[in-house]
Every structure is written in C-alpha cells, then in structure tokens.
Design a protein around this nucleic acid. Structure first.
Length: 502
RNA sequence: GGGGCAGUAGCUCAGUGGUCAGAGCAGGGGACUCAUAAUCCCUGGGUCGUGGGUUCGAUCCCCACCUGCCCUACCA
C-alpha cells in the first residue's frame, strides 16, 4: 500500500474563507478521496495560521487576547470545509501546543546546525505587511504601497536564516528531482529565482510577541511564515513520533497557489535541509480563479463565500465546477454563467437525466429489478478506456481530465440507449442486456465521481440497489466491467440535479 | 525596472514544424419521446494577440511590441 500525504496551505485566520481557499481545499480533498479509492493510505491536512502582528492587533481591537480571538476565527474555516463536504484527517492550528513545540524543535535544530545567526536591521516597517520597505517604495512619502497606511521606523536585532548557504544544494536538488514542482513552468520559475541568488532572511521579530518564542532567546518571536510552514511536519509527529514521521515524510504533496511559490519551493526546502530532514517531495502549484461573467465581474475572489455558492448551486455542483473547469496548474475562469452552464449540461442533462431514464425504463420493462450487464456490450470497451483515462488523469493530479473522461462514458451511454431504444422493445433478454449495461455504467460512474461528488455518488449507488457505498470500492478492480450483480431493486427517485432556469 | 505565465471558433479551453487547426457549451437543421422541453444525429471554415525573422514550409522555433495577470525589486 502506498501512502498519500496531501496538504493545503494553512489559511490566515484574519481572512474570511472565500472561493479561492475553497478551490485549493476542494482539490486537496478530491485528490485525497481519489487516493483512498485506489487503496492508498491517506493523510489529508489543512488548518489555520494564527500568529503575527495583524492577528494580535485585530484581537486587540476586539478587546480580546489573541488566542481567544483566533479561537473564534479558526472554526470559520473548519465550518466552511465541512460545508463543502471536505473530509480532512486533521485540522492544525499554529497556536496549538503541539505546533509550538514542533516549531521550537525544528528551529532549534537549524540553530544547532549553524544556519541561524544574529544581526540587526533598521528600517521602515509596515505593520499590515509585516515587512520593511525601502523609502522609494513608499507612496506619498511614508505610506505603505499596499495598505496606504504610514510605515513605522523600527530597529531590531533579528535572527537570520542563512538561506544563501543553500543555493547550490537547492539547484542540485531541483536537478536531481525533475518532478518535485508541478507544473513545469512553476518549477522553472522557482529554479530561476534560486539561480538569481538567495539572500539570508530575517526570521524573528522583537517588536511583537504573538508568536512562537525563540527557545534560545526569549526576547524574540519567530516570523509568522517561518512558524507556519512547519505545520506540515508538526501534524505527522516531527520530533514527537519519529516512527510516524518517517512513514509520511518526505513523500508529501503540498498543494499551493502560485503566489506562495517562493515560500514553498525555496524557503521551505532549504529550511528542511538546514534542519536535517529531507525536503518535500511534491509541490503542486495551482493558478488563480479568474472572475468572469456578468454576475461576478464586480466581485473579487475574497467576497465570494463558499456558503453563498453551495446555497445557490448545491455542494456537489460547486465542487464539480471547481474541479472540472479550473485545471490544476493554470488559471481558470470562474463565473456564475460557467457554473450554471456546467450544471445544466453535465449534471442535469447528461448525468442526472441518464440516471432518470434508466431507472424509469428498468421500472417499466424489468419490473423495477435491475438486470445483469451484457459482457459483450460496446459500452464495456468504452468503460475500459474511460477508467484507464480517469486513473491516468487523477493520478497526474488533474481532476479535470479524470472527470472529462468520466463524462465520455456518460455521453456514450446516452447515445447507446438511443440506438437500442429499450423503451420500445418487448421485455426480454435483449432489453435486459441493454439496461443491465446501462446500470453497470451508472455503477462505474458512481465510483469514478466519488472524489468530486461524494454525496451524489452515494445516492446513485443506493438508487441502483447496491449495498454499501461507492467510497468502499477499490479501483481499478471495481471499475472492471460486469460487476453489477443484477436482481437488485432499482429506485426511480426525484431528479438528481433539477435543471436550472438561468 | 527585473523574472515568469497567458492571449486559438460566440464562450470556456485542447493541440501539433507541414494532408481540411480540435473538444465541450451556446447557435442552426433533423430525429425521437424512456427521461429533468432532457437525449441522439448532422452542422464549426476561426488573420491560431500585432509586426518581423529562421525555414522549402510555422499557430506551434527566435526577436520585438501590445494586452492581462503573478512574483520581485539599491539587503528582511
């Protein structure tokens, strides 16, 4: 059995969960579900990033201490993911004792290995950005270009990470492992950044105290990014449970957005090397949701909440659109028109309608009892190809390709029914063969859509009379033709996806 | 200012150094009626962002430019 450890970035609690977060998380969830389906041992991690000055100040404004404030904010993410049927195995918060302990161990290891040193820096600091600016970067004399708020002059003695020492090692690592960062264009971006020269970076602050205190110098607190990245190893028992850690590390699959490539593809591998562990094996970079269409052109990603989408379209249709229409690795269009059109064509007309017509005709021609599939059906060959293509697509972390393949089988089955016209024929072996094969397609499709639309998959499974759940099936064996047993009671239910009028 | 990504049929996207550049959706025509006015069949001639160059020949190779976006920017 192989292992599949998949992570999302941990989301900053100060933000409200939005469709961009949902995109990353749903992809991670779908990949986790796919790997469970092929029998892998899966660990799916997400969580919240809760330190830093922005959080401390927000808490202060509410008259709360930071932890009390984040205790209120963090669950919004957990609730958002539950609302999208996301089944993460763990939800880590950087304020948890396990994580603080892990950060201390991890950074102490780097310190002990000689890659952290002390130096001082004086400059103009923006609290919102938690970074310093050069004077010519400022707007109107002393305003942060991002926040349009005044910067503050600060002088700090900070600890620095000797990132520059890892330039060669990182280049070698990239050369030796062509597949670590996907897609290739993003890998090249990371690599060229490294080759452009790496500078040592400040990793602590003295001006704030909401964070993990530096174990060897309690005047200092670790910079929020440095603390956050370590969550990935905390959750699998770094320094706490070596056996468990070795089982899951380094073969992790980090799923990240393209804006944080530098942190995950440069800093993080170097930090791992410095701490004496292997760098992460896979970083899957995704693009952005481009908001198009009339209804969304006036919105920004961070104003579209997952709850508003699922309320309007349903959980599975939202998942389907995110997975089907925005290929992992490139930017893609997200719009009301897009999701609506996808809903009607793929879900209502193709999938939902296929289930309806098959269950209806089984009711009228077979007395509501599903017959066995025809081993020599043309659909058997189609299904074989489709399962293979779906396995390849999902295996390449491309849900869109896996789903596209699956829908070829649905379309072919609708076409096959037109040819056979079982609703016209007299009940008998001929009709049974056609309908049994159609039911067999529905069984296979139910399995193939588990990662994208788990609830829909379960409902289809139930309606065609199968015991258990589609999640329990194991590909590729369960995808082979002829496993629908026949003799099962088939239920004609309400439309799975009623057509939308918009 | 530097680095990178993208610009292909109405829409969303595939794609290859060379016979007619593809799919899905939308649109048009036909068939059918089991089904959610669903399905099935036929129908796509689009300067492949602009201008050059390499080549016998480029949408795909190179250069410049335009447009959109991401990262980065006289040490955080």
């Amino acid at each position: 059995m192989s292992r599949f450890f998949v992570t999302t970035p941990i989301y900053y609690v100060k933000d409200a969960p939005h469709v961009g977060h949902a995109y990353t998380t749903v992809n991670a969830d779908a990949l986790a579900r796919w790997h469970r389906l092929i029998g892998d041992d899966v660990f799916f991690l997400t969580g919240t990033d809760e330190h830093g000055q922005k959080v401390a100040r927000a808490a202060e404004e509410q008259g709360l201490d930071p932890l009390a404030w984040t205790d209120q904010m963090s669950p919004r993410f957990a609730e958002a993911w539950a609302g999208l049927d996301v089944a993460n195995d763990d939800f880590i918060r950087t304020t948890e004792p396990r994580h603080r302990a892990s950060v201390e161990r991890f950074l102490s290891a780097i310190y002990d290995n000689g890659y952290i040193f002390k130096d001082s820096y004086r400059g103009l600091y923006c609290v919102g950005c938690e970074r310093y600016y050069a004077t010519d970067e400022l707007v109107d004399g002393n305003l942060c270009p991002d926040h349009r708020t005044p910067v503050e002059e600060l002088e700090e003695e900070n600890y620095f990470f000797r990132l520059s020492a890892f330039e060669d090692r990182l280049v070698e690592w990239y050369a030796a492992n062509p597949g670590i960062v996907v897609p290739e264009s993003k890998r090249n971006e990371a690599l060229s950044f490294i080759k452009g020269g790496l500078k040592d970076i400040s990793i602590t602050r003295t001006s704030i105290d909401w964070g993990v205190r530096v174990p060897w110098d309690d005047e200092h607190v670790f910079y929020v990014w440095y603390d956050a990245l370590i969550n990935y190893v905390t959750a699998i028992g770094y320094g706490e449970d070596p056996e468990r850690f070795d089982e899951w590390w380094p073969s992790v699959h980090h799923i990240i957005g393209k804006e944080i490539i530098r942190f995950h593809c440069v800093w993080w591998p170097a930090m791992c090397m410095a701490a004496g562990i292997e760098p992460p094996a896979h970083v899957q970079v995704h693009g952005w949701l481009l908001l198009g269409g009339d209804k969304m052109s006036n919105s920004s990603v961070n104003r579209i909440t997952p709850a508003s989408l699922t309320e309007e379209y349903g959980v599975d249709p939202v998942r389907y659109h995110l997975l089907r229409d925005i290929p992992l690795g490139s930017d893609g269009e997200f719009s009301a028109e897009g999701i609506s059109s996808r809903y009607n064509s793929d879900l209502a007309n193709n999938l939902g309608n296929l289930l309806s017509r098959v269950t209806t005709v089984v009711g009228s021609k077979c007395g509501g009892v599903g017959p066995v599939p025809d081993p020599s059906s043309r659909l058997a060959d189609v299904a074989g190809t489709v399962v293979a293509d779906a396995v390849a697509g999902w295996g390449a972390s491309r849900p869109d390709l896996g789903l596209e393949a699956t829908w070829r089988l649905i379309r072919e089955t609708n076409a096959e029914l037109e040819i056979a016209e079982p609703w016209k024929a007299e009940p008998g072996p001929g009709v049974d063969a056609v309908l049994g094969s159609a039911l067999e397609v529905l069984r296979i499709v139910a399995i193939l859509i588990v990662p994208a639309m788990p609830a829909t998959a379960r409902e289809m499974w139930r309606r065609i009379g199968l015991e258990g759940t589609p999640e329990e099936q194991r590909l590729p064996e369960a995808g082979s033709w002829g496993r629908y047993p026949g003799g099962l009671t088939v239920e004609k239910g309400a439309p799975l996806f009623p057509r939308r009028k918009d």
